[in-house]
Amino acid sequence: MSRAPEQNAVSPGLSAGTSPITLKVISIFWPSFLTAGLATILCFSVFDPEMMLLDTHFANASRLGAYTSGFFSFWVLTASSCALTCYFQKPCAVKNAKSENI
């Protein structure tokens, strides 16, 4: 028994793979979820949303509401960055092949 070979050959039919679409969805929405959570914790431990929103249109928003919208705003941002990474990962050859077909 030696150090783990990272990608061991799995017995065919026994182990389940995951479709590339699922993998893409996971890699866009999951890491961004984690970092958005972290950003939310850091942001709102430093700034009290009640103070931040005092002079704005949202002065009457509850803290829980502000945390929630904050979290989702962060998530949209981090997810778009993940999505761009995924988008730019597509090799140039694939793009070329597509335009040749047209």
Binding site: R3, A4, P5, Q7, A9, V10, S11, L14, S15, A16
Partner: peptide
Amino acid sequence: PTGIDIRDGLQYQ
């Protein structure tokens, strides 16, 4: 539960 064969050796799954 992750559907691997442990007899193939230590795996990250």
